[in-house]
């Protein structure tokens, strides 16, 4: 069973319908025992960082995510999901998040010289694939995906090829698997570490290319290339 984390963060129904479409057997739940038995976790959502973290903690889902990550269970995080996996978010005056990925989440700043750039970053954008991953198209290629967000992830990894920040001592390294740009920032659109792959875009709303990622997630064993 593929469990979709239920923490009242908007659009779980879209994710459920898309997973059903690709033949996964999704179930939206916040039941800790069911989540522990699930073969895969999907951490979806739209919402504000503070509100989402509060509900995750209330339902003890923060620990469910950390345990699943530690056990190597395949996890797919989307939109607010990718953002909450980092150490902290700038949103809502600064919110400590799950700390699975080293780094933080920052707000887009509209460029003063270009009123045509709108925040939120809402619509289709082109993502370039940077590294091989079992559930993604090959590196060197591009795909078009649907985004809706005002904040973006800034991983603290040396090999991001997006932002060059020093690695943190004692923390495992991950990879930026895909990048795109908005408001003058080249940012990480797909981030992965171990059995956890996270996208800032919505694969469940990105047409056939998005469904293809979900279809591969359905059978992914959590190993990376």
């Amino acid at each position: 069973m593929t469990a979709i984390l239920d923490y009242d963060a908007g659009n779980t129904e879209s994710m459920r319908l898309a997973l059903e479409k690709v033949g996964a057997k999704p179930e939206v739940t916040c039941d800790i025992a069911k989540l522990a038995r699930a073969q895969r976790l999907v951490f979806p959502g739209v919402g504000s960082a503070a509100q989402c973290m509060r509900i995750l903690r209330e339902r003890r889902l923060d620990q469910v995510i950390r345990d699943a990550f530690r056990d190597g269970k395949p996890i797919l995080a989307v939109c607010i999901g990718i953002q909450l996996l980092f150490d902290r978010s700038e949103e809502d005056g600064g919110v400590p998040a799950l700390g699975v990925f080293p780094g933080q989440v920052e707000r887009f700043i509209p460029p003063p010289d270009d009123p045509g750039v709108k925040i939120p970053h809402m619509g289709w954008n082109r993502v370039r694939f940077l590294a091989p991953h079992p559930i993604l198209p090959p590196p060197g290629g591009y795909g078009e995906f649907y985004f809706v967000h005002s904040y973006y992830p800034v991983p603290a990894w040396e090999d991001t090829a997006v932002r060059h920040l020093p690695p943190l001592p004692g923390r495992p390294g991950g990879k930026v698997y895909g990048a795109t740009d908005h408001a003058g920032v080249d940012f990480a659109a797909i981030v992965g570490l171990g059995s956890c792959l996270a996208t800032q875009f919505h694969p469940e709303k990105s047409g056939e290319v998005g469904l293809a990622i979900l279809e591969r997630f359905k059978t992914w064993d959590g190993q990376t290339c």
């Binding site: 129904e13 319908l17 898309a18 479409k21 649907y146 919505h202 709303k205 047409g207 056939e208 998005g210």
Partner: peptide
């Protein structure tokens, strides 16, 4: 509609 289309 949600079961048929996978765009916003």
């Amino acid at each position: 509609v949600g079961r048929r289309i996978f765009i916003p």
